[in-house]
Design a protein around this nucleic acid. Structure first.
Length: 429
RNA sequence: GUGACUGUAGCUCAGCUGGUAGAGCCCUGGACUGUGACUCCGGUGGUCGCGGGUUCGAACCCCGUCAGUCACCCCA
């Protein structure tokens, strides 16, 4: 029978890697905490309809990347491909949005059926923040600052570029899309298949094309900026001013168009060139229409999401993960002779109760003392406690040995073991 | 979904134009040792991703399939 293996694009994260993840998670939680954001948790499964109505029917995510299926009741469900839709649904369902301001964050796995490659997986982890009930550019600036402050903590600020753009209101874009669509239709013979397919369904996505021929054809295309409302323009320039005042550098990318339909006005991405083709580490913007679109009251909103795999990858390749992040064990207990198993476990239990923070491995499986010592060194523990007696004699003393170059060791009575341990490790009860 | 490259012991890889598999590391037993590291001796471990085909014979050739990597695409 063939060996079972993980589903394509869904990775196992092994003990060697988890400390890196814990480090990033800790930094993120500190960053959002500094800005007063509170955690929200919501399901991985939702009605498929939720994602269709929020992300958009004609987006790639909904059209060909969702894990959707009928459950036993015949309801059509989907694994969440992103977090914002579920967050809005949960917050609105429980009355967190009406006439209120909310600063929320979440973290968890998302699912998209794409071809895996570096920095892109079918199950991937996102951190996100969502701010509700604040319509001004100040909250846009704050949300961007949350991310910027995390880059600073992680030491990534020099490797990331902030790109921003103003994609206008839904009405602005509707008028623009009509004009662009007309232009593209007129120049259809200069476009590739991909662009031709989109010129009616989602013409703005054509602007993103990396095909030089398509980009050449777009040279004389109508520009979104000429279709923006005054309100939108003022909001955007106020945001730029705020960013400048807090010292956040940015570049304006007129071609930055997000792939999810719910965005409006200011959108942004943090990108890097140290990750290969998947250069976007974090993306977000305003989505003032989404709450209403999902059946709630009109609610201003802004947020972002970042890909944890990409962050870990980046930190790893840049050597930015502190060595001390992996949690090391403090003590390894060497037990010579099976008759000492009982006394060893009792002593270990007492020490763990006495020092709740202590990490102690009790050797299991027997074996010669020299082999057990080998394991003690390999475990990374700072101290070894050696339990050994003349055969038949009761255990009265143990040896505590430093597992460093000094190799210094002392013999202590069992009753004093904890005291000596605390002294050597400089810990308290 | 498209394309290119890759798939041999737990890990990193060798294996000449086809003749039924090797190294280093790891692990493990022993010797030595000031209860680990160095050195020496021994050992476990692979139906060569999987399935077909060509051949007297395939890890090596052909087809298919699965998986990995990278790019397109897409986005976090």
């Amino acid at each position: 029978m063939a060996k079972l293996q993980a589903i394509r694009g869904m990775n196992d994260i092994l003990p060697d890697q988890t400390p890196n993840w814990q480090y990033v998670e800790k930094c993120f939680q500190q960053a959002v905490h500094r800005y007063g954001y509170r955690e929200i948790r919501f399901p991985i499964l939702e009605q498929t309809q939720l994602f269709k109505r929020s992300i958009g029917e004609v987006t790639d995510i909904v059209e060909k990347e969702m894990y959707s299926f009928d459950d036993r009741n015949g309801d059509n469900l989907s694994l969440r491909p992103e977090g914002t839709a579920g967050c809005v649904r949960a917050a609105d369902q429980h009355g967190l949005l009406f006439n209120q301001q909310q600063r929320l964050w979440y973290q968890g796995p998302m699912f998209r059926h794409e071809r895996p490659q570096k920095g892109r997986y079918r199950q991937f982890q996102q951190f996100g923040v969502e701010a509700f009930g604040m319509a001004g550019p100040d909250i846009d600036a704050e949300v961007i600052q949350v991310s910027a402050s995390l880059w600073q903590d992680l030491g990534l600020e020099k490797f990331l570029t902030l790109e921003i753009n103003n994609i206008g209101s839904a009405e602005d874009r509707k008028r623009y899309a009509a004009a662009l669509s007309a232009f593209l239709t007129f120049h259809a013979d200069e476009l590739d298949d991909d662009a031709r397919n989109r010129m009616h369904s989602n013409p703005m996505r054509v602007l993103d094309s990396k095909n030089p021929a398509v980009q050449a054809a777009l040279k004389t295309a109508p520009a979104l900026i000429d279709y923006l409302s005054d309100e939108s323009i003022v909001h955007y320039s106020d945001l730029k001013s705020l960013l400048s005042q807090v010292g956040i550098e940015f570049v304006e990318s007129p071609r930055l168009v997000r792939g999810l339909d719910y965005y409006n006005n200011c959108v942004f991405e943090w990108t890097t060139d140290s990750l290969g083709a998947q250069g976007t580490v974090c993306g977000g913007g305003r989505y003032d229409g989404l709450v209403e679109q999902l059946g709630g009251k009109p609610t201003a909103a802004a947020g972002f999401a970042m890909g944890v795999e990409r962050l870990v990858l980046m930190l790893d390749s840049l050597g930015k993960i502190p060595k001390a992040t992996s949690q090391v064990i403090d003590v390894y207990m060497v037990v010579v002779g099976s008759e000492l198993a009982g006394p060893a476990q009792l002593l270990a239990k007492q020490l763990r109760q006495q020092f709740p923070e202590l990490g102690l491995i009790n050797h299991c499986g027997g074996g010669k003392s020299s082999n057990q010592m080998k394991r003690a060194f390999k475990s990374g523990a700072r101290l070894a406690i050696v339990l050994e007696t003349e055969s038949g004699q009761p255990l009265e003393t143990v040896i505590i040995r430093h597992l460093n170059d000094s190799g210094e060791s002392v013999s202590v009575e069992i009753a004093n073991c904890g005291e000596k341990l605390a002294e050597f490790l400089s810990i308290s009860e």
